[in-house]
Design a protein around this nucleic acid. Structure first.
Length: 587
DNA sequence: GCCGTTTTCGGCCCGACTGTTTTCAGTCG
């Protein structure tokens, strides 16, 4: 029996420190301290929250000063927070500045200056107070504010209250692609591209950003705002239009001169952090990069036809949009260490789908035909196991029958392999829903949690460990169980799960279902860094959901995955060899 | 408050939009 230790709240400390630093930054600005000081705190906050290990390790080893943006002063404050859970400087600031102003600051249209002005003139220190006074028409009476800003603030308060105004990529992306296709129909349009987070394939999207090149912007804007799907036009001029489409998304279209298209695309793709770093690099190299053009040291404009030329001019290989999150991609590019990202064409099969045998909508044969049409070499049928009664989970008998059906089906194909698998439930006590003799007969075993979401961090992590330790388990499916927009995942300690998977040679799933995308990109990167292979599965419950694969691929790419990190890029012979090897190793 | 083989001092991304202003500050991406 090995020692069991859950690294409790590994990243919580990091979040605590960065959250406090962000508060300090805001409060400093409210207090009127110079902005470069506040910026220093924000920079350190960002470093710390995206640190792959606990800040405590840096503190213990007296290595805090190694962190970019952390100097003597911030190191001292970090130590204080780690040791006492408090930060006296933050507390002092809260004495000097009403902390409620931090909420006021969340309202779009209100920055630190405005927050201070409305505080000084009306004594407003909370969102509720702000809303009352705005409704009463008091804000417009303040010098330099006015009616328009008051309206904007009221709308902003609504937005903050509605909170997470983001939608799933799985909804936004098709809308964005449809609108882009529609725009290509307009003859005045010389080029169209998705930009912003939808181009970077972020898991959720605020607004959809589109970019078009045209010499006749007004014609393009007329066409765009007149599209049948456009429900409401929020704003429009000859450079930008913002509309709400019938699905409720806000879509922004920017139209630029064709010669600025590539630089604009780079700029509007973001992320902000990526662009910031790229501009800094440009400056170092004597260039000036803006959304309009790239200027060399003499102020001459460098002709840029393709986005890749921008990177090339700065001495970098092309950085795919999925990597542009300011998570070290520019450094990696400089050092020639960018990953060769996995691509859709690399995927040879899907190792987790359902059929009507449990809660799927299609027959095995339909799923297989659909997978063949996609050019796959294999498909693993992994229906639910018996304890998941709500999903019509299979018992031993039905599972055995299903295996026979699959065996018959395999007789019919010489170009396709159907794997007999199961998505076996990890029960509340960590045991699996089938005995070893049953699991041992299958080609592949996918294990996952569907019950007992309320278990504590330690308990549920131990439960996942039990599955990872089981010799017959190949894949851990949707490792956190989250359903975005519906429920949070369980409190599993993912850092520990990744380490355990590495130790036990298990595969972690990237579930491609748009509301799961579980593992998420950051953890995918951690997993592959530690040598844990991943698999991109759709968990399809119908033939249509097989198409969700792209969203999983995007997550893998955002997690810096190369083809070799993803097991369902293996051709069928090698996949079978690999699975067989695992099983032989048991004997 | 941090950072640097171009600087240990003097910088810290750049540009557009908004609203209110008569020349610009504040906010945003």
């Amino acid at each position: 029996m090995g020692s069991y230790e859950v690294k409790k709240g590994v990243r919580m400390k990091n979040l605590q420190v960065s959250w406090m630093f962000r508060q300090i930054a805001d409060l400093m600005e409210l207090k009127g301290e110079p902005s470069y000081k506040a910026r220093a705190y924000r920079k350190a906050a960002k470093t710390i929250e995206s640190l792959p290990v606990s800040i405590e390790e840096y503190s213990r080893g007296d290595r805090l000063l190694e962190l970019p943006g952390v100097g003597v002063n911030l190191a001292r404050k970090i130590k204080e927070i780690l040791e006492t859970g408090r930060c006296s400087y933050l507390e002092q600031l809260k004495e000097e500045v009403p902390p409620g102003l931090l909420d006021v600051l969340q309202v779009p249209g209100i920055g630190t200056k405005t927050a201070v002005v409305i505080y000084r003139s009306l004594g407003i220190t909370s969102l509720d107070e702000l809303e009352r006074q705005a409704r009463a028409g008091k804000l417009r009476e303040i010098p330099r504010l006015g009616r328009r800003l008051e309206e904007k603030i009221l709308a902003g308060i609504e937005f903050v209250k509605r909170k997470d105004g983001r939608v799933l990529l799985g909804w936004a992306r098709p809308v964005a692609e449809g609108l882009a296709a529609a725009l290509r129909e307009e003859p005045a349009v010389e080029g169209v591209a998705l930009a912003g987070s939808v181009r970077r394939w972020r898991e959720t999207i605020g607004d959809i950003d589109l970019l078009a090149a045209s010499r006749e912007p007004d014609r393009v804007m007329n066409f765009f705002t007149g599209l049948p799907v456009v429900e409401r036009v929020l704003a429009r001029d000859s450079t930008t239009s913002s509309v709400v489409v019938e699905t409720g998304f806000q879509v922004n279209l920017r139209v630029v001169e064709p010669r600025s298209f590539a630089t604009a695309l780079q700029y509007f793709t973001g992320s902000v952090d990526h662009n910031l770093q790229l501009r800094r690099l440009a400056t170092e190299k004597g260039f000036k990069l803006s959304e309009y053009d790239l200027e060399d040291a003499d102020g001459g404009k460098v002709l840029i036809r393709e986005e890749a030329e921008i990177y090339a001019r700065l001495g970098l290989p092309f950085i795919p949009p999925e990597l542009r999150e300011g998570r070290g991609e520019i450094e990696a590019a400089i050092e020639g260490q960018l990953p060769r990202l996995v691509e859709p064409g690399d995927i040879k099969g899907d190792l987790h789908v359902h059929t009507r045998w449990s809660d799927g909508a299609c027959e095995i044969e339909e799923m297989v035909e659909a997978a063949r049409k996609k050019g796959y070499q294999y498909l693993a049928i992994c229906d639910h196991s018996k304890s998941l009664a709500v999903a019509n989970g299979l018992d031993e008998k039905r599972l055995a029958r299903q295996r026979e059906v699959i065996a018959e089906l395999n007789q019919r194909y010489d170009d396709f392999t159907v794997l007999a698998g199961v998505e076996v439930d990890i029960r509340k006590d960590g045991t699996l829903d089938f005995p070893d003799e049953v699991l041992g007969e299958l080609d592949i075993v996918v294990a996952s949690i569907h019950t007992g979401f309320g278990q504590g961090r330690e308990e549920i992590t131990r439960r996942v460990f039990a599955a990872l330790d089981h010799p017959l388990v190949d894949i851990l499916a949707h490792p956190t169980g989250r359903l975005m927009g519906k429920r949070r995942g369980y409190e599993v300690d993912l850092e520990a799960v990744i380490a355990r998977a590495a130790e036990k040679g298990k595969v972690l799933e990237i579930n491609a279902s748009p509301d799961r995308l579980d593992l998420s990109d950051v953890y995918v990167r951690k997993a592959v860094q530690q040598g844990v292979p991943v698999v991109i599965n759709t968990d399809a419950h119908s033939i249509y959901a097989l198409d969700d694969m792209v969203f999983g691929i995007a997550v893998a790419r955002r997690g810096w995955c190369e083809k070799g990190d993803v097991i369902n890029t293996l051709p069928v012979v090698e996949l079978l060899e690999w699975l067989g090897g695992r099983r032989r190793g048991l004997k």
